[in-house]
C-alpha cells in the first residue's frame, strides 16, 4: 500500500531553493534511506511532509488523502510521525510524560502501547522518571523515537536518529527499525550511510534540493553521481 506520494514538491527560502521538485513514494513495510550532503534539503523535505510549512508547489498525498495544506497536528493524527534532527524534548517533563503527551493516530487499532514499553524499546527504561532536560543527547535522540512511536504511526520519519549514539546504541536503534518496518513505512535520513544502508530497502540521494539518484542500496553505493556528491566523505568506501 502506498503511504506517501510526493509530486514535484518545491520549497524556496527567499532566493534559495531548498527543495526543488522532489517526487517520491513510500509504501508500507519498507525502509527508505534519504541521503545527501549537508544542506541537500533533507530536513526541509521532512518538514514539508510533516506539515511544518506548506510547499510552494507540488502535492503531498498521505494514506490516500491530499494533505498538502493540512496542518502538522492533523497529519500526525492521520499517522504521520517524525523525529527532529535537533531534538525538541519537553525539557521540564519526564521521559515518560514526553511519551504520554503523544495523541494516538485516529483509527489506531492496536491499543496504545504503554509508555514504559516504548521507553524500553529505545533503551530508556530506567530513565522514565528523569527530567528530559537532564538526558544526554543520545538519550534525547531515542526519546524522540519513543515519542513518535507513541502516536502509533503508519509512517515514521527519522531525521538523523543515530547522531550522538554510541555504536551499540545505534545498532540497537537500527534493529528496532527493522522490527518496526513490517507494520509501517519508515524514511530515515542519516549521514552515517555505511551503517544505515543495510537496513534500507531503497535509497534516495539528494543534493542541492533535487534527487540525484534513487534505487536499491547496492546501486546507490556505486552510483558515480552519489560518489561525487559525497566526495571526501564517502568516496573512499
Amino acid at each position: 500500500m502506498t503511504l506517501l506520494d510526493l509530486r514535484d514538491v518545491t520549497k524556496r527560502f527567499g532566493g534559495l531553493q531548498a527543495v526543488g521538485g522532489v517526487s517520491l513514494g513510500v509504501v508500507q513495510g519498507e525502509v527508505l534511506g534519504l541521503f545527501g550532503p549537508n544542506g541537500a534539503g533533507k530536513t526541509t523535505l521532512f518538514n514539508l511532509i510533516a506539515g511544518s510549512f506548506p510547499p510552494d508547489a507540488g502535492s503531498i498525498r498521505f494514506a490516500g488523502q491530499d494533505v498538502t495544506r493540512l496542518p502538522a497536528w492533523r497529519r500526525a493524527r492521520l499517522g504521520l510521525a517524525r523525529t527532529f534532527q535537533v531534538t525538541r524534548p519537553f525539557r521540564d517533563l519526564t521521559a515518560r510524560e514526553n511519551v504520554l503527551a503523544a495523541v494516538p493516530r485516529r483509527g489506531s487499532t492496536t491499543p496504545a502501547a504503554p509508555a514504559a514499553r516504548l521507553l524500553a524499546e529505545v533503551g530508556l527504561d530506567g530513565r522514565a522518571d528523569d527530567r528530559a532536560g537532564d538526558l544526554t543527547l543520545g538519550m534525547l535522540k531515542r526519546l524522540e523515537v519513543a515519542r513518535a512511536l507513541a502516536t502509533d504511526p503508519l509512517l515514521l520519519l527519522l531525521d538523523e536518529p543515530l547522531a550522538g549514539l554510541t555504536g551499540r546504541e545505534a545498532a540497537d536503534l537500527l534493529a528496532l527499525v527493522v522490527r518496526l518496518k513490517s507494520r509501517l513505512g519508515i524514511v530515515i535520513v542519516e549521514h552515517n550511510v555505511r551503517q544505515c544502508l543495510p537496513v534500507c530497502d531503497r535509497a534516495v540521494v539528494m543534493e542541492g534540493g533535487v534527487v540525484i539518484a534513487s534505487g536499491l542500496p547496492d546501486a546507490i553505493r556505486t552510483d558515480p553521481r552519489v560518489i561525487r556528491a559525497y566526495l571526501g566523505q564517502e568516496a573512499a568506501e
Partner: peptide, 20 residues
C-alpha cells in the same frame, strides 16, 4: 501533560498530534 507540552514546545507538540 499535553498542556505542559504546549508550554514547552508547540512544534513538537503539534508533531505528536496535539491540536495546539
Amino acid at each position: 501533560i499535553r498542556l505542559l507540552a504546549i508550554r514547552e514546545d508547540e512544534d513538537a507538540a503539534a508533531a505528536l498530534g496535539i491540536g495546539v
